[in-house]
Simulated assay, not measured.
Amino acid sequence: MLKMQDINVLIEKFLARTISINERKILKKWVLQNKENLEFFKGEIRKRSEGTLYHHFDESQAFESFLTTINKKQSHKMRYNAILKYAAIFIGLMSLGYLAFQINNSPSSQMDTITSTGNTGKENNIIISLADGTQQIISSTGETLLTDKNGKTVARKKGQGLDFRQQDPQNSQNLVFNEIYVPYGQTFTITLSDGTKVWLNAGTRLRFPQNLNTISQNRVVYLDGEAYFDVTKDEKRPFIVNAQNIDIKVLGTQFNVTAYESDDNIATTLVEGSVNVYENSNPDAKVLLRPNYQTAFIRSSGAFSTQKVDTRIFTSWMEHKLIIDNLTFDQILKKLERAHNVIIVNNALHLKNEVYKGEFDNERIENILNIIASSTPFNYTIENNVITISK
């Protein structure tokens, strides 16, 4: 039988990041024993979060203690009339067990299960539009050959990817384009005919030459959405990603581009190598990026903003992770809509500009919303694929 003195020691160790794996299991078991223990633990967390600057929730790392009171200054960018007061949330210990307990025992819970709308239309499938005008639905599993209307092999489908390196040698040598669309809630990979590999995020459309090996100059693809590129090096034939207002020109490197039409920013994040980024209308004004730097073209102002970043934040989607680094509530909801193929209606407008930090590893959307709600309380209901958030 654990005494409260022992529990307090374990909580202190947890917050100090010195808790062992065995001690963590003991603490977790105690917290999940009943609602009183859960509330006591949450209360201890809140005590240590008073006066801190942002909501922090981290699922993959131990909780980071925020005891230092940060000067509360009004942020000009956020345009607040009142300074936000932030709380800290612990997730690493509780994870799904904590969420299950909270959901099943809280009388105010608004949980339902997300169910399919029953819509099996093309908008919910990965679609490849071939150069000959035909369209095909691509399954996210299995292995098959992708052929055109004449039965010629265009690509090989294996698992969650298409490989265009294994084409029928009798295919046209003319420059023709294919287009692939990945809907919300899914990701996909393609290997272009020159060996360049592209990871496509949810809600992304990529237009690309069917046979890059027939191109004697620039290798150009067109992106609307988000993609990670691992470009095959070819000094004689630069690789260019046209992302609406901007071009990203490389010889061979790895980088992430976020260029959703609904976003004001078009961001290029460089992992390795070097890239030139420039506005289509002004190709002479280039931004040269080095590894671990990101440049964002702000459409509303027509200007570039460049900064050093943790590239893991911007590439974690490839591993089905969500890393939140000083994102507003609205920005988080937009990411959740894309990743989980849902529509979110936010009627809790007071949360719109709240800022958060945290990390989720392939979590259900209900779990993510519950975690955020434990910091800045709100209710939500789910009907089919529509989530409505209220005060």
Rank of each mutant, 00 (worst) to 15 (best):
L162G: 11
Q254R: 07
K25C: 13
V221K: 00
A243C: 12
D132Y: 07
Q186H: 10
L93P: 01
W199D: 10
E354Y: 05
D224Y: 03
K286R: 11
I127Y: 02
V154H: 02
G159A: 06
G302I: 15
Q244R: 09
L289F: 10
I138E: 01
S301I: 07
N201Y: 13
S305G: 12
E272S: 04
L145Q: 11
G121L: 04
Y380D: 01
A16G: 13
K158C: 06
D194I: 06
F66D: 08
N213D: 09
R205E: 14
L2I: 13
E123C: 09
F208K: 00
A88V: 05
Q135H: 09
V221E: 00
T68I: 06
N245T: 13
S216V: 14
R219H: 02
L99E: 03
T18R: 05
N341H: 07
Y293D: 12
Y278A: 04
L162N: 04
D6F: 03
T295P: 08
N105V: 12
V198L: 00
I127K: 02
N201M: 08
V355L: 12
K236W: 05
K286G: 11
F14M: 10
S75H: 12
Q136Y: 02
L84T: 07
G133D: 12
N150S: 14
L38T: 15
A259C: 14
I248V: 15
L288H: 13
I21P: 05
V275Y: 01
S375I: 00
K321S: 08
F57A: 03
L2H: 09
D284K: 03
K77P: 03
P238D: 04
D132T: 10
I368Q: 00
Q61V: 15
I89P: 01
V386Y: 05
R290A: 14
Q110D: 08
G358Q: 02
N326R: 14
N178A: 06
D284G: 08
H56N: 11
E39L: 13
E366T: 08
G51Q: 09
T253E: 05
K35M: 12
N150M: 13
L67G: 15
T196H: 01
R237W: 09
E235F: 08
N341M: 02
Q110W: 06
K357Q: 15
I248A: 03
I11K: 08
K157N: 10
A267V: 06
T191P: 05
L146F: 11
A88Q: 03
Y278R: 05
G161H: 05
F255C: 03
V182C: 00
I83L: 11
S216H: 10
P107D: 06
S95W: 08
Y54K: 08
R165I: 15
F90D: 08
N242V: 09
S109C: 05
D112C: 07
N218I: 14
R46G: 10
Q160C: 11
I313S: 05
G121F: 10
E354D: 15
I45K: 00
S49G: 11
V31D: 04
K77M: 13
D330H: 06
S300D: 14
I11M: 12
Q166D: 15
R17S: 15
T147P: 01
G358F: 01
E12R: 11
L130E: 05
P183R: 00
P291I: 04
A243M: 08
S139Q: 12
S49W: 02
P377F: 01
D234S: 11
N8Y: 11
A100K: 14
T187Y: 00
G121V: 06
L27H: 01
N8V: 08
Q254I: 06
L212S: 04
Q167I: 10
F208S: 00
